[in-house]
Design a protein around this nucleic acid. Structure first.
Lengths: 213, 213, 213, 213
DNA sequence: AATGAATGAGCATTCATTCAT
DNA sequence: TATGAATGAATGCTCATTCAT
């Protein structure tokens, strides 16, 4: 199930330009959304932030919600890109998992504002558009599912097949947890400590001698 | 550190009446917020839903954001009430934890719309008000910390003291996870299955023979 | 088939006030529409012209098109009111017709700007709303149908029944013609001349000795 | 007084090309205007409909209102062309009139959408431009004046000279009436019936034995 | 001659809040 | 205490027109 982005119509014919301008729009909007939230950000602010006139901006989008979608899609793509770059084909399942979890925590630490944004504003998207965003989220979780399955196959991880999906989600949630609860966790743990403790917990759940589910 | 609710000024002297009317307001607003989100709900709609005129409603609040705060506070109180009613003084730490986790998943399943609301709209509160909400959240997590500490003291749970807070948050997050990811989890697991699998995972992490942290 | 006006929702509860304010709105809007046309008149101009703030005006209407409907409905009502006040029960059909035609031309002469407005802007109304306006138009024509039928019954007018409707429309159109073609007719005929000539023509068509249809 | 079309400046030198492109523009615009009205049709839509880029289109017109003028002028020309092709020099006045009326009703029936367009949108033209359109309208009516005069001269029609203009306008209005009131007339009469009844009425008014005006 | 990206003034509409009654 | 009419700044979005290429 390969993810397809929702096509946003544009009045502009030059496709290259459309992509460039939309990157501009996303870059201008993302920090505004993070700082003020989607609803409190005005289209005029977005236009100013991305260096386009309001009229020009609207040549490349149809509604303000399109900007939110573009932002969410960008964040997800960035997330996925950075996650997958840590995965090597030749590694064992367990090794892959270790690296992926480590990268997950690092990336979530660095992109926590953005991840928070997705969780808080996805519901502001039109129903149809929201599905695209949720599907992308599921797809990212899918990478962990595949690592876990590889570990089961090559015997380096222990997990019942029916728990694979759940465990993949658990891993993702532990990553996101830092973004949701940083305001309190950071008072007690550094990101490194947090990463170490949570990784230990997760790997122990998947150890051979103990079994899972 | 006992939680104190943020005092919302009112023009009305009769404190009993203030409380009654605010309960009315919360009951009218909460489902609107769940359904449409805070920003897309108008004060007129809230007034209609709670059976007050717009003028009267504003006698009991100062701003629309006050309603959001009252709603968040109500949800948190309800959450805490239902969580604590499952905890018995005479139980062992391990026994308490089992019951509390079981109750947590049950309550999160039932209140998932409300919990989602808090996570999506807290950021719409004024900075100062937001602190009250986050503090209440932390306080609820505190109940699990205290159960874990009891289990360590009475020897029924195994956990390093420095991991207590983290583990309490992990438990809370596993509860909330159902609200955030229900859209996909529910396609693969029933709430009962989900509860059973996650509880097993959590309790195994805290088992005597395996040690924690 | 009694005409019912389209109900326009309002946020204001006091029905008396709604009617008063809507009269204000109509009075403010009608001359703007006549002078500039519906599309070139802004809601702010209407609000200013009727002495309401833009916000207040929108408490009494839902859309700008509602104002157009209110204006059309007002014009039609005024037209009908002035037409019917010339009709006496005790008159013969022929006598009624003479008076009605005379009054029709007088009223059309006086209200020609307004009548023109209806003809030029009705198509700017939403489909559903347009039906109400057209129905009212038909209803006004109906008065002439009934006069013609009376004349047939009392033997003072000669006309085949199947031509009654057509002749009623012919009469109406001759009245409106002055509003559509005043710019050229007025260069050659005074309204009095015009009325005299057209009335003679119409009455001759309905004379006993000649028969109709 | 021969009608001259209003000259619309163009940046393009090649006059042949200007005329061809303007025909294209009119063909693209006319149905859009009929369907959506002048104000609700955008220049972009017109450009798309006539197969020109927006920039190219503006090489051949100066403003959107120029398109409306071109459309009105085209409709009038078409109207006149089809009307005059039914008139034969060798016919008597009465014979000419019969044929012209018959053709008038036929053409009005076929072009009713277009005729309606002129009546509803002429007022959207700049004052100066509007005069050209009204003059053309008057010129078309002039054809009937000339036929009536011929009938007076050759003794086949009876009409006082002072009523010639009025009667010519009456004829035109009876033709247009079908376009204005088709929505109700068509429910009671077919176009054929309508034509027969109205023609009978008009010819009776002009009969020798009865006199006119 | 043709193109189409850029512009920004302008528009209809909303809605939290106030305050006279 | 309760009411609800009044307010107007603010917002998302449009579109005729221009002009550099």
């Amino acid at each position: 199930m390969k993810h397809r982005s929702k096509p946003i119509p544009s009045f502009i014919k030059n496709q290259r330009l459309v992509e460039q301008r939309r990157r501009q729009i996303v870059q201008g909007a993302v920090d505004l959304f993070v700082r003020k939230g989607f609803h409190k950000t005005t289209t005029r602010e977005i236009a100013r932030a991305c260096g386009l006139s309001i009229g020009t901006m609207y040549e490349y989008i149809q509604t303000k919600e399109d900007v939110l979608y573009l932002v969410c899609d960008y964040i997800h793509s960035e997330l996925e890109r950075r996650l997958t770059e840590a995965i090597r084909e030749e590694d064992s399942g367990r090794e892959s998992l270790k690296k992926a979890i480590s990268q997950l925590f690092r990336v979530m630490g660095e992109m926590s504002d953005y991840v928070l944004l997705i969780y808080q504003e996805t519901k502001s998207l039109p129903k149809e558009t929201m599905k695209y965003v949720l599907q992308k989220e599921e797809e990212i979780t899918g990478h962990f599912e595949r690592i876990l399955e590889k570990g089961i196959r090559d015997g380096t991880l222990s997990l019942s097949p029916s728990s694979v999906k759940l465990m993949a989600h658990n891993i993702m949630v532990m990553g996101q947890m830092w973004t949701f609860r940083r305001w309190v966790l950071a008072r007690h743990y550094s990101l490194e400590e947090y990463t170490r403790l949570q990784t230990a917990l997760l790997l122990r759940d998947l150890s051979l001698d103990e079994g899972g589910g």
